[in-house]
Design a binder for these strands. Structure first.
Lengths: 194, 194
DNA sequence: ACCTGAACACCGTTCAAGT
DNA sequence: ACCTGAACACCGTTCAAGT
């Protein structure tokens, strides 16, 4: 059987969702496709490169059209929720996307649309970049926590909040704190001196 | 040679700092101590357990005394900077501590002192927990970014900002956004003194 | 109590060779 | 262009056996 990049990425997304990031190995992807592990290196230079393509695919499947003529803070909320939903849709999605983002790989940068939404509010580029990174770190961290705890609950017996309503509430609350900080364009923290 | 838990943790911290988290393997720690890999399992039930002990050690070495009678927001800033400095002191410190924290392992929880500082301002426990997690996600994410980029720069040729002054500025700015969001939250039950 | 030695079931990656 | 087969240098973990 002859495969293309997209076939391999598609299969890798399946392996991710079924077995988790820890078991998303080159050897397992290859064997699921009926290939030798070495065959994958004809399509991707390294495992990192394949993971970046998988992360891009996860984000692309969760992408929704941006609404540039709505208020900047509504756009930030919409972009953050879109990102959260995209990562929640696949097992270990948050950890995968965060890892790929940390290494600077991947075509889709979730930071760019956040930053431009904040810039559209009239903030300068440097501030918008820092604010966008703050939002992004929050989203990655929160959703990673959600997924590891959801995993722990599924492994155990009962799940008090299977739909994650409490998670959604604390996600919105944490996000609103950062937005409020941006709105009030916080005074820089003082360095304590004695 | 006969070792105790503490000897192994100490050596593991050294391996972490010298080779990074990816090369912090049971086999490498063992060989650095002149032991068989299996010997480590007499002291630790698993690699995860050993990593938790290493993360605790890193945090403990960076611990500074808390100042409970200062303003709540100054305490949050001080705790966040302490955490940042502790993780920056060892290669991949942030990724290690964040991973251990995500799995709910480790004795030292950096979230607890943050939450109690926020509670001391009069906010209820549930809000304080969410606000503390928001701060924590930001700190983990920001410092992880700092360390991966610092790593990339050290591998390359030049480093424009070797002391990370730009990183410190954006750390303080991001942190101040979250603090401003907490401040503008209505209805603290008690009013903070000072 | 603490460690050795050997084994089991895995990894990512390279490379000559096949079609 | 796409893949096989074999190899290299690794992993975490278990377990009987030694002192």
């Amino acid at each position: 059987m002859r495969y293309h990049r997209t076939d391999i990425v598609e299969r890798a997304v399946g392996v991710l969702d079924q077995y988790g990031l820890a078991d998303l190995s080159m050897r397992r992807i290859a064997s699921e496709l009926g290939l030798q592990p070495s065959a994958l290196y004809h399509h991707f230079g390294s495992k990192q490169e394949l993971l970046a393509a998988v992360a891009d695919e996860v984000l692309e499947r969760g992408a929704r059209p941006d609404a540039p003529d709505t208020a900047w803070d509504d756009r930030v909320v919409a972009l953050s929720r879109e990102l959260r939903d995209a990562m929640l849709a696949y097992r270990d999605g948050a950890e995968l996307v965060a890892t790929v983002h940390a290494f600077g790989l991947g075509v889709r940068s979730p930071a760019a649309p956040l930053a431009s939404a904040i810039e559209a509010a009239g903030f300068d580029e440097a501030f918008a970049r820092t604010a966008a990174m703050t939002v992004l770190h929050f989203v990655f961290g929160h959703v990673s926590d959600e997924q590891t705890h959801r995993q722990a609950n599924t492994a155990g017996a009962i799940d008090a909040d299977p739909l994650g309503r409490a998670d959604t509430a604390s996600f919105d609350l944490g996000l609103s704190l950062i937005l409020e900080g941006i709105r009030h364009r916080a005074a820089p923290v003082r360095t304590a001196r004695h």
